[in-house]
Amino acid sequence: MLRRAEFWGGLFWLGVGVFVTWQGWLLELGTLHEPGSGFVFFWLGLFMSALSLSITVAGARGEGPLLADLWRGARWRNVVMVIAALIVFGVLFQKLGFVLCSLALLLFLMTFVDPVAPRLSIPISLAASVGVWYVLEKVLLVQLPKGSWLEDVPYLSWLAG
């Protein structure tokens, strides 16, 4: 039972369903004459709970693939690295600005996730990050983060505008 993907998937959504039902209850159900803000949440939460319970029960009965089978032979480390890189990107985006962040992201992905020769990865990363910055900032006039940390750094302050 504990090794089945269906069981864990169903359990996760059951938790979400119960949470939505509870939130709907807190938001006020209103009456049928005048449904309140939580009316749809409450009933949808119950609907979700019922569906996910049926999936959980099916998993508990041994239906569906094993959890381990979902990642058998997969290069899951790549997925973890990309997610981690994106989170770091999100955290540093405002502080380092678009150009440095995207350059670092591209170089990281092309060096560690699915390696590309440096003679390709470096010029492509440079051209892409500076090129996209130029098109968005100068041509389309889209405001991108300039990097609050760069404002006082010599030679890099041009990036911060």
Binding site: L86, F89, S102, L120, I124, A128, P145
Partner: peptide, 18 residues
């Protein structure tokens, strides 16, 4: 694809931010 996917990812970020 190893060159395409980092670029696509960067475009996704730019698109969402914009």
């Amino acid at each position: 694809y190893r060159i395409l996917f980092p670029l696509i990812l960067m475009f996704c970020i730019v698109g969402v931010f914009a």
